[in-house]
């Protein structure tokens, strides 16, 4: 081979996917981009997303709720997860975190340093923490919906991992339910009994209503905003932050430590929500009002629902921690502020 040929073939060897080069990524792409870029080829595909009749139910659904959403940008593949998670990095980091949770469980099962839990605290756990399996499962379902409707694989993967995080905390709660039941009574591990609390307890009903309605928020923009900018942040502010403070005050350090760990998942999910808002608004400023509109629709009823649920912990809240509602409000307002979605931030 002549030198000229060597030079030509060296120049011709592609550095990365043609799709990634065409997207204007000039630097060497990261492994995250190589395995995540532009996999949802049917977004905006003409004439229909799927090779079926235009009126086939799934074509109609995607054209209406994904392509037809008012939450849109020209290029969804410009979005990046701030944590650049790949499947491998997600399972690796969560495996380490699960080892950490096992160590917490081991420590308390060894028994040496666990103060005895009071029966009335266990009753609170049953009503609040164990029953939150149901609310978390709805969040898992809603994240799965968002994943399969996502306009880009960069967005879909974030939603998949979020759903995985919900399953993670549900299973730890199930473990605790069984563990508590061995000492405090079988009903703690009886799903019928827990389901009755979820379905009948008055303090849960406003939140259950919000969550059931969240399931039918089918528009892409509404599904994202309702789940990630309203319901989940407020839910987690209560079931992680508030419950964590109370658990600490009740000397239930096992729960407090677990919740500290789940907060890392919740914070990471807030990070991609914030990044997606920033990206969508940077690409199309009208998206700010689109999202703010959905937040405005969902916020009042969700805040009211969390306030109703707060009644379950009101008499346990340590007086020296200020106002319980303030903690939820501050946590949530900080998220909205980071997103530029507070009413006072309207431009």
């Amino acid at each position: 081979m002549s030198n000229a040929e060597t030079t030509r073939s060296a120049r011709k060897a592609p550095k990365t996917w043609s799709q990634l080069s065409a997207a204007g990524v000039r630097r060497k792409p990261s492994e995250y981009e190589v395995v995540t870029h532009n996999l949802i080829y049917h977004m905006d595909k003409s004439p229909t997303p799927f090779e079926l009749a235009a009126s086939a139910p799934l074509n109609a659904w995607y054209l209406r709720y994904r392509e037809g959403s008012t939450f849109r940008v020209d290029d969804w593949n410009g979005f990046r997860d701030p944590h650049r998670l790949t499947y491998h990095s997600y399972v690796s980091q969560q495996n380490q975190r699960e080892i950490h949770l096992d160590a917490i469980v081991d420590r308390f099962e060894a028994g040496g340093d666990r103060p005895p839990l009071s029966a009335d605290w266990v009753a609170v756990l049953e009503r609040v923490y164990l029953t939150s399996r149901y609310s978390s499962h709805v969040l898992q379902m809603a994240a799965m919906y968002l994943a399969q409707l996502s306009p880009s694989s960069y967005v879909a993967n974030c939603a998949e991992f979020q759903a995985g995080d919900e399953m993670r905390r549900i299973q730890r709660s199930a473990y605790r339910a069984k563990s508590l039941s061995l000492q405090f009574g079988e009903q703690l591990a009886d799903t019928q009994a827990t389901r009755r609390i979820w379905e009948d307890d008055e303090a849960w009903q406003p939140l259950r209503k919000v969550l059931e309605e969240l399931l039918i928020a089918y528009d892409l923009g509404e599904a994202f905003a309702a789940l990630n900018l309203v319901v989940k942040p407020l839910h987690d502010a209560f079931f992680i932050n508030v419950l964590g403070v109370v658990a600490q005050a009740e000397d239930d350090e096992e729960l407090a430590l677990m919740l500290d760990d789940f907060r890392l998942d919740s914070d990471r999910n807030n990070d991609w929500s914030k990044a997606l808002v920033a990206y969508a608004v940077s690409q199309r400023p009208e998206n700010r009002d689109v999202l703010a509109g959905w937040v405005e629709k969902w916020r009042p009823q969700t805040e009211a629902a969390i306030e109703a649920a707060s009644a379950m912990l009101a008499d346990r809240w340590p007086a020296d921690r200020g106002d319980m509602g303030e903690l939820v409000a501050e946590t949530y307002e900080a998220l909205l502020s980071d997103c530029g979605l507070l009413p006072t931030q309207a431009v």
Binding site: Y134, S173, T191
Partner: peptide
């Protein structure tokens, strides 16, 4: 505990 984590139907 597995059944507790999957009987989340309501």
């Amino acid at each position: 505990w597995y059944d507790i984590a999957r009987d989340m139907n309501w």
